[in-house]
């Protein structure tokens, strides 16, 4: 007889209620990271985009432009190679490379492992360059304060409705490569409509990491978000 309900199921199985959140382990570690950032007065920003949107170019530029004013640490996520970390280091940045192997996203445990190595000082910014992918990283909380999606004008203005989870979780979208606008058919108002359709509160800033357009606004946004020293 079945041990749960008394039926005559010959398999004699027993049902165990679990009600267990599958992401609970990652969320727990993310909360621990969040507490660490709060305690150390560090602003953590999770940067996400498709491959080739210009994350690393933007980071190189930021390290150069803000180096004297704002301490910046970078956690570089890629499936393989140290190429991106070497680029950031060459620009003068404090950087750790995280290789995910077959993994398509960073998780909270990987970032936790990078923190003692980076040791970001109080009042500084930790920029996490997630694996280039508009799908998987959306699901994994790293303990960051903000999620910023970087997309480039060559990707087309309908990206937010094609990848709603990614855009819904963002505080800000940086639309990169606006220096290419004369050469590609990208409709900025249509893009803003698409982004607000999935995320009515999202901010959008057009930038060019190579030519410098819009970077002052992005840096002002970052400065406002940095915790003031206690």
């Amino acid at each position: 007889m079945c041990g749960t309900c008394g039926c005559d199921d010959p398999a004699e199985t027993r049902t165990v209620l679990l009600e267990q959140d599958v992401l609970a382990k990652n969320d727990r570690l993310a909360d621990r990271n969040r507490a660490w950032f709060a305690e150390h007065g560090v602003l953590a920003v999770n940067l996400m985009s498709s491959p080739g949107a210009g994350k690393t170019t933007l980071l190189e530029r930021m390290v150069t432009d803000l180096g004297g004013e704002l301490a910046i640490s970078v956690a570089e996520g890629d499936q393989a190679t140290r190429i991106d970390a070497d680029r950031i280091r060459a620009a003068g940045g404090n950087v750790v490379q995280i290789n995910t192997g077959t993994g398509c996203h960073l998780d909270a445990e990987m970032l936790a492992g990078a923190l003692p190595v980076l040791d970001p000082p109080p009042g500084s910014v930790l920029l996490v360059e997630n694996v280039g992918n508009l799908v998987c990283p959306a699901l994994f909380d790293l303990g960051e304060r903000h999620r910023v999606v970087i997309m480039s004008v060559t990707e087309g203005e309908d990206k937010p409705v094609k990848y709603p989870h990614m855009f819904r979780a963002a505080t800000l979208v940086l639309v990169n490569k606006v220096d290419l606008l004369p050469y590609v058919p990208f409709d900025m108002p249509r893009f803003v409509d698409a982004a607000r359709h999935v995320n009515p509160e999202v901010d959008v800033l057009p930038v060019s990491a190579t030519r410098g357009d819009g970077l002052d606004s992005w840096y002002a946004w970052l400065r406002r978000a940095v915790p003031t020293a206690a």
Partner: peptide, 20 residues
Amino acid sequence: SADLELTSGRQLLVKRVEVA
């Protein structure tokens, strides 16, 4: 309007298991 506060539908749960 697309301005919706999601109240349910994002859950990812192991509800229950049967053990032999």
